[in-house]
Design a protein around this nucleic acid. Sequence first.
RNA 1: UGGGGCGUGGCCAAGCGGUAAGGCACGGGAUUUUGGUUCCCGCAUGCGCAGGUUCGAAUCCUGCCGCCCCAGCCA
Length: 567
Amino acid sequence: MTGETEAMTNFIYNMIKEDVEKGILGDKCVHTRFPPEPNGYLHIGHARAVLLNYELARIFNGKFNLRFDDTNPIKEEQEFVDSIMDDIRWLGADWEDRLFFSSDYFEVKYEFARRLIKAGRAYVCDLSQEEIREYRGTLTEPGKESPYRSRSVEENLDLFERMRKGEFPDGNRVLRARIDMASGNLNMRDPVIYRILHASHHRTGDKWCIYPMYDFDHPFSDAHEGITHSLCSIEYTDHRPLYDWIVDNALELYPEAVKFHSRQTEFARLNLTYTVMSKRKLRRLVEESFVEGWDDPRMPTIAGMRRRGFTPASIADFQERVGVSRADSTADLALLEHCIREELETTAPRLMAVLNPVKVVITNWPEGETELTEMDNIPGDESASTRTVPFSGELYIERDDFMEDPPKKFFRLAPGREVRLKGAYIIKCEAAIKDAEGNITELQCTYDPETRSGADTSGKKVKGVIHWVSVEHAAWIKVNLYDNLFTIENPEEERDIDFTDNINPQSLVVCENVPAEPAVAEADPGSRFQFLRKGYFYYDPHPTSGEKPTFNRIVPLKDSWAKIKNK
RNA sequence: UGGGGCGUGGCCAAGCGGUAAGGCACGGGAUUUUGGUUCCCGCAUGCGCAGGUUCGAAUCCUGCCGCCCCAGCCA
């Protein structure tokens, strides 16, 4: 993300490089933009578009604009403008002083529409919505021309002006581009470019009651801002001829309002395994309470991933590794997990916490004595220094780290067997105490004083090393263990059943009372740790319940024991 | 006989006529006081299929097959 030499190799980068080398940008620099509609939250798929546009501009020493595509007052809200800006900023894409809104240009666009009318290339159509649909024809049959197609320029101008003045109700008439009703491309069959909408706009209020359509608005806004490369997703490929038609006309009829004939280039949307990305499905997850909100850590939204504990760098690294192409693709969640693990391996301080505790009593430990041990914050990183962890005769260890009747390859604690307590001593299990139901309530062990970590004179070697927390010194925290939201790789592809039927019932497992080493009390909300042998966790700065510190599991550590065990 | 797009290993993805990069995943081994990390090694006689052109084809041509998008006064 930092150097100028990164080898971005994708077809868009190559194309821009060629454009620059050929000098077709003239005196302009590379200029991109991210054009969200403020009608929802950004997700990991949008992050691709944000970062691609931003990075391309940065690499070529160009400019990157943020422009809200706010041409439909019915669906758009200020709340989304705010959350989108917040997410983009968090991702690290800097639009500097170039924050724009399509609605900023409503007046110029109105003038451009008038010029289209004067040139005989746009007309007011009185057909009803249903009639327009009928006249449009079908995928295999050409459309029919509207009876209003040949209205005089004067009449069109008058009608369009009256549309703006609010003389007609919603849906009463529209302004259409006059192109080709027989085109095989439905977008060219006299597309509607303005509709009447008596609705309050989040920025322009009630100033307007006619609003431009995307196909008219977007190309013009790009050209108006001087965007050189207009990147969008693959489904807009069919719209490209219309995009060019609009820009060509703007250049011809209204040259003072446009700076460049931007070029539209499409790339495939990004999907991720074990989740869904469609706005409709994400909304259902929230509205039907399968998750706790748009920022639930299980959601693929940027807000959710932030809350989960992912970092901007890990997301950028992920995007870079996935790459960009025009082919439909679904990236493997494992790659995203790899990226965050790789970053946190060298940056997250270690801490010990016992997620599912069972008590260990060291029977030969001097009554009431506490010993302090020094442990590395980040092994292998001298600058990360160490912390002090108290050790005593009563400890918690993971229930999983003990087996009464272990298989051959189990290296941890079992009756008569020894393990090392990380940073402390080697202990041997002498007895397992059970309650009336047969549940283990306590493990009685003895320690070997010769085996103190860093000063071991016993010569003993054990294969197992486990983490622990001193009962007396434990700090209590709450832990949210997150797992995949869906149990199948491609929940979006299921056609016969509702996608919610594949929701993972274990996607969130809450551990209300987790003992952790006392250093956890000094942690700052918003910081990340590795809970030794368990995974990477994020200290949630916005816990939803209680005052106890809450840690969200970002991702577990790789677990090769799980693989061995399941064989 | 509508238009458009896409098909390279499990998932992504380079390659653009000179004999299949890379990452993740996966398998094996070494190191390891995290069954983590790190380090080696392995992993497409093959580029949707079938023909053709060429000394030579994933790359060019022809024909098939499969998947995706389009009939909003949404973006």
